[in-house]
């Protein structure tokens, strides 16, 4: 994706943007860091865009919204959903961002390479649908689909919701993403098994708050979990209850606003599949209140900020549960 860097230069020198939000090259190929570039020289020196630029940049725009002038940003399809949701929530002014949509075939991550058992990674080359990885212990080839970030495994959409210009082709929503399959599998389990599954996952939580801090939907100036008067500001998962509480409430607070960007799972240092909590809410909302995708447009009301007089009763949980369990 050479075009991205070129575009960044063009936007800065052409005066379309006062700064560009993109990625800064790292020490190695797999560790670019989000960065703000104010000059063409900086872009020339440090800007990078490749298969390992997976981070969702939209949340940084909340802070940049207060800066003077226009920020140009490169958004992948899933990032664009987050941005639209934030604009909808009046956290970002549309006119303060210049959006360059970047078509995406899925992003890769170091974590995926490690999971695939590749040790001592030094560098990589893209070879069609595969990555050739040079390591300390010899070369190896991994299919791109096996090197994908967890959040890209079930891509929901290749459509860039809003943009000022586009690099690559506009895509469509992915009808058969299969992103609810895992949720459905869990729903089919017995309550005992589900409980055991989640205890096993959530008990590893170290309350580092990475999931919360990276989440574009968690945009509160002061989080309830940081409020000493809330009675729930225990920094550590001091008891299994605290972990449950934290994750249930966090998922609930973003329910119907979560665009399913998957950043929570990507950043979890303990590899907890947190997206499965969010997807459960999304799946329920779709099934009970009609299909709804947060961030897909500028005007529909999120399900929890809306109601129908004929909505189902909470007892539906028993009815549906009865069918399943």
């Amino acid at each position: 994706m050479q075009g991205v860097k070129q575009k960044a230069l063009e936007l800065l020198t052409g005066g379309k943007a006062d700064r560009v939000l993109g990625w800064r090259r790292g020490e190695t190929f797999y560790d670019p860091t989000p960065g703000v570039f104010a000059s063409a020289e900086e872009v020339e020196r440090d800007f990078v865009f490749d298969a390992f630029c997976g981070a969702n940049l939209s949340k940084y725009l909340i802070a940049l919204d207060r800066a003077e002038g226009v920020t140009a940003v490169f958004l992948k399809p899933c990032d664009s959903y987050s941005l639209v949701q934030l604009i909808k929530e009046h956290r970002i002014h549309r006119e303060k961002v210049y959006i360059v949509g970047v078509a995406c075939e899925g992003m890769c991550g170091y974590d995926a390479l490690m999971k695939a058992g590749i040790e001592g990674v030094l560098s990589f080359e893209e070879e069609g649908d595969a990555l050739k990885v040079h390591t300390l212990y010899g070369d190896t080839v991994i299919a791109r689909k096996d090197a994908l970030l967890s959040k890209c495994e079930h891509c929901k959409s290749k459509r860039i919701v809003t943009y000022d210009e586009l690099l690559g082709e506009q895509g469509d929503e992915v009808a058969d993403s299969g992103r609810f399959d895992e949720v459905a599998r869990l729903e089919k389990m017995t309550p005992e098994d589900r409980f055991a599954f989640w205890q096993n996952e959530l008990s590893r939580c170290i309350r580092c708050n990475a999931c919360r801090n990276v989440c574009p939907a968690c945009s509160c100036e002061k989080c309830v979990f940081d409020n000493p008067d809330s009675g729930i500001r225990n920094k550590a998962a001091a008891d299994s209850f605290e972990e449950n509480m934290f994750h249930i409430i966090r998922a609930f607070h973003v329910a119907s606003r979560c665009t399913d960007c998957g950043e929570c799972t990507r950043v979890c240092p303990q590899r907890i599949p947190l997206h499965l909590l969010n997807r459960k809410f999304i799946k329920d909302i779709n099934e009970l209140y009609g299909e709804y995708q947060a961030g897909a447009d500028f005007d529909t009301r999120p399900a929890l900020l809306n109601f129908q007089t004929g909505d189902c009763e909470p007892s539906i949980v028993h009815v549906r549960g009865g069918e399943r369990a």
């Binding site: 998922a251 329920d284 399900a303 929890l304 809306n306 109601f307 007089t309 909470p314 949980v317």
Partner: peptide
């Protein structure tokens, strides 16, 4: 009406967690 939606989703989540 809002409470109804919220509790529906919350109860469903608790059920999902095996409560």
């Amino acid at each position: 009406y809002y409470a109804r939606r919220r509790m529906t989703l919350l109860f469903s989540m608790l059920d999902y967690l095996g409560i």
